[in-house]
Simulated scan of single mutants.
Amino acid sequence: MEIWINPACSKCRTAVSTLDEAGAEYTQRRYLDQPPTVAELDELLGRLGLEPWDVARTGDAAAKEVGLRALPKDAENRPAWIATLVENPRLILRPIITLDDGSAVIARDPETLARVIEQAGS
């Protein structure tokens, strides 16, 4: 299992703490220091079953600055969404946990974290 985190994010710190308390084995990826490639983000979106606009922090002021909010949410603009998120990883929702079974989740709530821990323990 791998968790993509920003250490400055309270939800990331909570997720890491919860995983630690449960004794889960995982690898941390500080995705601001080690941004995903286009291929990695595209693969992650497939694992999540989501589109890039579903994992974008569009309410962030930086989303407006880089033009993300103005991009249409459609197949034609999907590559531009992915490229913008790769260039501006701070705009990716977090924390994201990838599981060894090939699935992935955005772990922003206690229920999702509980399911991850249960799956990891199986």
Rank of each mutant, 00 (worst) to 15 (best):
A104E: 06
K64A: 15
V86F: 09
P79F: 02
S122G: 15
A114R: 15
S122C: 12
E118C: 10
L48W: 04
L68E: 02
G46D: 14
N6T: 05
P52N: 07
S122R: 15
D42I: 01
T27Q: 15
C12E: 06
D33W: 01
G46I: 03
A104P: 00
I96K: 01
G67S: 13
L50H: 09
E21Q: 15
E65M: 13
P52F: 03
L93E: 12
A83T: 12
T84Q: 04
E2D: 13
P110Q: 14
E65H: 11
P7Y: 03
T27D: 15
A61E: 14
D74R: 07
R94P: 01
I117C: 14
I106F: 05
P7E: 06
K64S: 13
R30T: 09
E25T: 14
E111C: 03
A70T: 12
V66R: 03
A56S: 11
L71E: 01
A39R: 11
I96Y: 05
I5C: 02
T98S: 14
G121Y: 00
W81P: 07
L44N: 08
D42M: 04
W81S: 01
T37K: 11
L99F: 11
A22I: 07
L91M: 05
L41D: 00
R78I: 06
E65F: 00
I3C: 05
T112Q: 10
P7V: 05
D33Q: 15
Q34C: 10
P110C: 07
W81D: 09
S17H: 11
G121Q: 15
V16T: 12
I82D: 02
T98M: 04
E2W: 06
A8V: 13
T112M: 09
M1C: 12
I117G: 11
D74K: 06
T98P: 08
L32E: 07
A70E: 15
Q28M: 10
V16H: 09
D101Q: 14
R78Q: 09
I92M: 04
I97S: 02
L44C: 07
C9V: 08
R90L: 05
E118A: 15
V66I: 12
D100I: 08
T18D: 12
A70I: 01
W4M: 10
V105Q: 11
P35T: 10
R57E: 10
G23T: 09
L113F: 12
K11G: 06
A15L: 05
L45K: 08
Y31P: 02
K73G: 05
R108H: 09
N88E: 09
I5E: 04
P52M: 02
W53C: 07
L32G: 03
R57G: 02
R108T: 08
